[in-house]
Design a protein around this nucleic acid. Structure first.
Lengths: 198, 198, 198, 198
DNA sequence: CATGAATGAGCGTTCATTCAT
DNA sequence: GATGAATGAACGCTCATTCAT
């Protein structure tokens, strides 16, 4: 990658990050191109040099978030051998990412409401990939006899729902810090999966 | 209530229902007053005869949904004596309401993004009321020794998150019907709460 | 006039008075039919029973004010014989009417901006009538040798301007009361007309 | 000031002038943003690039007119030494400005009807400044024994009223030209102020 | 006569998008 | 590459007006 291309890529990422933050805060429609540009001391026009349109910006933002989540998951999978620990780490990372990167809009967003055509396909596929990543671990646990023989789809969606919901209540009840909350949730969710010990 | 007033109330409710449906589908900002009116073969102007502005319409809609949810819960509480059954029924009703009434926007919505002042206060209080309703049942279970001594706040939020998430995946994976899904989810969530049987 | 017609006439006048007050306060365009009706505990629909449209209401209001001013002037003319006293009384009445009846909109209003066709003609003619009424007195004074040989049109317009301007400053500088102000103004304006005494 | 800024300032002024003209003609409420823009072959959107909203446009217009009037007055005060001549010149300039710049809306406008808060304060202060400017000259005349010992406030308001009223009758009675009218009015108004010569 | 309800035209305003410089 | 400026389509909202009851 040439130096120029690197610079462009860096700028693009800055813009995406700015966009993610503001959209998470105000919502997509309430966020203006002006808002996004202003936060970076740019003008609207410049943003259009890097992104085709607002829709594109949303798409790239969302895609980036999903891809990173998937990468995070992969990294943890490589790093950690034990099934349960793997799942716990992934949940913690998910919640952490949700809160620190403020990509709140990931949570309740219905992709069909914002994307269509190829974009929608890509997004849905990335979502699926992430879901499958979780499924694999659950399956791994079941196969190894460590997890109970649960309905994987249901279990995974309970986990996803519980995790994404954190955004709704984290701030308001700040007694426990992020780490503790992630641990507690993991702990409880594990009860769904784990085989009753005899 | 006079006949006039009844008619007005009915019309208001029609509009609210229409609004709820469309907002659930397209999102609040993407929904125009025209959309809402057109669906009822009305004109924009008429909608404004019944509601102060778009914001008011959103507020009333959301409030109605929350109030009904709370009433549903109360009714079930009165009707069903057994703690576990009570909780199961409430979960089933919640999911059912979510899907059939399509009030998808309840799920991922951050009230702070849409409301402020008194409206926000009211909404937050209604949310709290609903949450407390769940908490009471959990506490009842714990006190009776039937549930494990879980962190109520965490448990409640896992339950809420898991239930509200259903909207995100119900349609796309329609093999199981609504009832079954609600049952499965309840079943699994119960594992978090129930004391391991010895 | 039948009893019914009397009732109607009375109602019409009530509405006109209400309209005058509110229009004087908020301006014609900023005044809604709702405002006018509400002040009389009526509904918009009723007002339309008595007046064709908003324009008609404005026209009738303005016409009424002008006609009364003219009648006032006539009455004073009949009553008072002395030229100077006549003029003074008319000025005082004019200012008094302006302030108490709050028909502020008479002052700065350019009829061409609000009326056209027959309505405009009528209004302009009534204005002329009032102006001529003043002119006659001035002429009378000149003929009798009591007033100087001034340009009547100019003199009359100075008088009208000075009087109508009162609305702009009366309230804010309330040290002197209405009567005194009217007297002072008359006094000074008289200097324009009166022949320097030798 | 950079060239850019100059261009912007120029454009702003163009818009203000356009606004003043149309508002003077049709009145504030009857004037649409479209009207103002169209007169300059612009689109509504462009006007909003330069002015926050319609209210802002009115405020800036009015402020500009008042400021220029005050500056005009100051310039004349510097230029002309003799009290009477000073006053005459100011009156002539006032009437001239009123007619040529068509800022008719200055005349009968009640600021309280259009402005509030800081805007109202500023406008009222500018009005006061102008009024005080007149008062000073009157006082100067009195002190020098050239003017009679009149009530300054009353005298000033008669002068203002008479001058502003010109807008109401100038066009329709166009026999005399602007200059002559200004002279006549000054002449007559001077009679109010001047000490009777013995 | 009165009114509640409905309508539609029109206005102010926002904002994504474009483009000359 | 960046930006100031311009655009136009769309939306929320108001309000005079109409009309069935």
């Amino acid at each position: 990658m040439s130096l120029r291309a690197q610079k462009t890529a860096k700028k693009k990422e800055e813009i995406l990050k700015s966009a993610v933050t503001i959209i998470a805060e105000k919502g997509y429609h309430a966020t203006t191109m002006e808002d996004i540009a202003a936060k970076l001391l740019m003008t609207k026009g410049s943003v259009y040099y890097y992104f085709k349109d607002k829709q594109d910006l949303l798409y790239q933002s969302y895609k980036m978030l999903l891809e990173r989540s998937i990468e995070n998951m992969k990294a943890i999978k490589m790093e950690v051998p034990a099934t349960e620990e793997k799942l716990r780490r992934i949940m913690a990372a998910h919640i952490d990412y949700l809160i620190t990167e403020r990509f709140g809009f990931e949570a309740g967003m219905k992709p069909e409401q914002f994307f269509e055509g190829e974009q929608l396909d890509t997004i849905l596929e990335l979502r699926s990939l992430y879901a499958e990543g979780l499924d694999e671990i659950i399956l791994e646990g079941i196969d190894s006899g460590y997890f109970d023989n649960v309905d994987i789809k249901i279990a995974r969606n309970i986990i996803l729902g519980a995790m994404n919901w954190v955004i709704q209540w984290y701030k308001s009840e700040g007694e426990k810090d992020q780490k503790e909350i992630a641990d507690s949730i993991s702990e409880y969710l594990m009860r769904i999966l784990k085989k009753p010990e005899n």
